[in-house]
Nucleic acid binder design. Structure first.
Lengths: 191, 191
DNA sequence: TACATTTGCCTAAGGTATATAGGCAAATCA
DNA sequence: TGATTTGCCTATATACCTTAGGCAAATGTA
């Protein structure tokens, strides 16, 4: 019998594409085996199990997203950098909804530590260097930034902003304006 | 044979509790049938299918969450109201992670329209009445508020803020401070 | 080249979950 | 009391995950 030439990498890449087409949690070993015209059991030579596949897709997405964010950030500072980072996340989620969902997949701590997660945190901090925030405010701001970016993208992709005016692009621009204003004038803690 | 006394409501309630214990997407008809010591097929007298169960849990969670938020909001205005609403969401997510996840379950448009979703939107707008925002800024602000609340809760429950200082409670307080400051001084759109 | 080893895909089989069809007994109604 | 409806059952089909064991293709070695 001829061999199909499977590798973990090809399977994970195909899984990522499948995720974008049908949703991350519709990605199954069975579907993947069908695509490669191979029996399901054959995949176990390349992947430990179904979780291993999902982890691989998550790591791929985290790395791709970090690469895009780093590209977008290069040479920018201040509000330009803020918008670039936010747009990198939002655009990625819109172009690759399945991969974006994969990036939220809960990784075990060791895997997470080896992932591109750290680069994401570093980039948020890089954006904040354009503003004047000392610790611990910088950490608070990193968390707020992440919350707005992730929250907006999640609600938008869930269709939360779709059937009403003003359109979502406008609200997004204003959210970036608002974050910029906030970071330039970060409030002291309330008594 | 004695009857088990199942109803859709009992199944959905038990499903919600199961969701909090093991996670929303581990809620299965099989697990539920085991709990009630009944065969899986018997559940189909009360629920159309597995999606029907999940929809029921989602509607339950949306309604509970809206009730809590309404309670928290009663008699408050301005920053008090803002914090009350935010805390209602965050506390609910921490006490009932499975139900909170269920509230994110994608509903078909007709079901969504009949859900407590509208009450949630109304409550955000009620909070904003304590600030001075005319349309369309009010809508932009509603969306930002939702993004921060949902985004923070999602990242926190994913463990994003857990293994580092400052602690998450502090960042949350500062996020509420920041939102309040922002709403009191909402920036004009950028050229 | 010949043979041994490793690797890749296979069949077989067992487990879990969803879903439908059809039956029988309990509950309800006339 | 008898007729009807309702609730739970068994049986069956499908889909997915996973492990075990086998054989042939690919690779390494003499």
């Amino acid at each position: 019998m001829a061999r199909a030439g499977l590798t973990a990498e090809r399977l994970i890449t195909a899984g990522a594409e499948l995720a974008d087409q049908v949703g991350f949690d519709q990605v199954t070993l069975s579907a993947l085996a069908r695509q490669f015209d191979v029996k399901v059991a054959s995949l176990y030579s390349h992947l430990k199990n179904s979780q291993d596949l999902k982890t691989g897709i998550a790591l791929l997405a985290l790395a791709e997203l970090a690469d895009r964010a780093a590209d977008a950030l290069a040479g920018r500072a201040g509000k330009d950098a803020l918008a670039a980072l936010g747009n990198a996340y939002r655009d990625y989620a819109r172009e690759h909804p399945g991969r974006y969902a994969a990036a939220q997949f809960r990784l075990d701590p060791r895997t997470a530590a080896a992932s591109a997660g750290g680069r994401h945190a570093q980039m948020s901090r890089a954006v904040l260097r354009g503003y004047d925030l000392a610790e611990p405010d910088q950490t608070h701001a990193v968390r707020l930034l992440g919350s707005v970016f992730h929250g907006y993208v999640a609600l938008e992709s869930a269709g939360g902003f779709s059937h009403s005016s003003p359109d979502s692009q406008e609200s997004w621009s204003r959210a970036l304006d608002a974050l910029d204003a906030l970071l330039r004038n970060w409030p002291a803690p309330t008594g």
